[in-house]
């Protein structure tokens, strides 16, 4: 494959990304499964904490609960995409394109990021009445959200491409992805908490830095190894 591989180009990237969107628009499988999952999570958490006082502990709990929901929503999405790939043979077809396989990885990552951000938007809309969520008041939050999504999905897309083919792949992805992405989770919860309780965004900076380091590292590893992991 490597001798015929051409370097990644913007038109190829756009074409592949367009394909992902068209497939999703036709099947709506990812958005419905992730969205439904996230909505159910928020409802269940809301039921579990109904009648509790709206104090600092409660708000911290809501933050942690939303991060957990969004992590699992990401895993649900990755698994759903992997099973579609496996059943319909999308993936092996995609790997045949005459380009660097890192391109496929980048496309998958960008698409997955978009689905996850949409799901998180839905979660926040639901959490405002159901969990009395009143936290999205700092612009830096959006940055933290995108960075942590990237930190989870960059190794997630890489690992899902391999676990998708294994038996019990759905459970495997959860087991494999959680240890790797915990630094991201630490950074995300730390940054949101620091912004919540701290005097300003300065206290959140070490956590944002941790997120940035994780993102850069996982992205580099993913781009380098995606082709190798899926060759042959």
């Amino acid at each position: 494959m490597s001798d015929t591989a051409r370097p990644a180009s913007l038109p190829a990237f756009a074409a592949l990304l367009g394909r992902e969107f068209r497939v999703e628009l036709r099947t709506k499988s990812l958005i419905t499964s992730m969205g439904l999952f996230a909505a159910l999570c928020v409802v269940i958490f809301g039921l579990g904490v109904k009648g509790l006082m709206l104090d600092d502990t409660f708000r911290r709990f809501v933050l942690a609960a939303l991060w957990v929901c969004s992590w699992f929503a990401a895993v649900v999405g990755l698994n759903r995409a992997a099973s579609a790939d496996r059943n319909k043979g999308f993936f092996s077809a995609l790997m045949l394109i005459p380009h660097d396989p890192a391109l496929v990885y980048a496309v998958r990552l960008v698409a997955a990021m978009l689905w996850l951000v949409l799901t998180q938007a839905l979660m926040i809309v639901l959490a405002v009445p159901m969990l009395r969520f009143d936290f999205f008041d700092q612009p830096l939050m959006l940055g933290v959200l995108v960075m942590s999504d990237l930190g989870v999905l960059a190794p997630g897309v890489l690992l899902a491409s391999a676990t998708g083919r294994a038996r019990g792949g759905e459970a495997l992805l959860t087991i494999a992805l959680l240890p790797v992405t915990v630094p991201v989770f630490l950074g995300a919860t730390g940054a949101t908490e620091a912004m919540h309780t701290g005097t300003g965004s300065a206290e959140a900076m070490p956590f944002v830095l941790l997120l940035a380091v994780c993102d850069a590292m996982f992205l580099a590893i993913g781009l380098l190894l995606f082709g190798k992991l899926n060759e042959g």
Binding site: L158, L159, A162, A166, L172, V180, K228, L229, E231
Partner: peptide, 26 residues
């Protein structure tokens, strides 16, 4: 997780690849 992953993947090539990639992630 690496040891569990190794046991779960059937094909030898895929297993070795996964082991190496996960080792790098660790």
């Amino acid at each position: 997780a690496l040891l569990v992953l190794r046991r779960a993947i059937d094909g030898e090539k895929a297993r070795e690849m996964m082991t190496a990639v996960y080792g790098i992630l660790i």
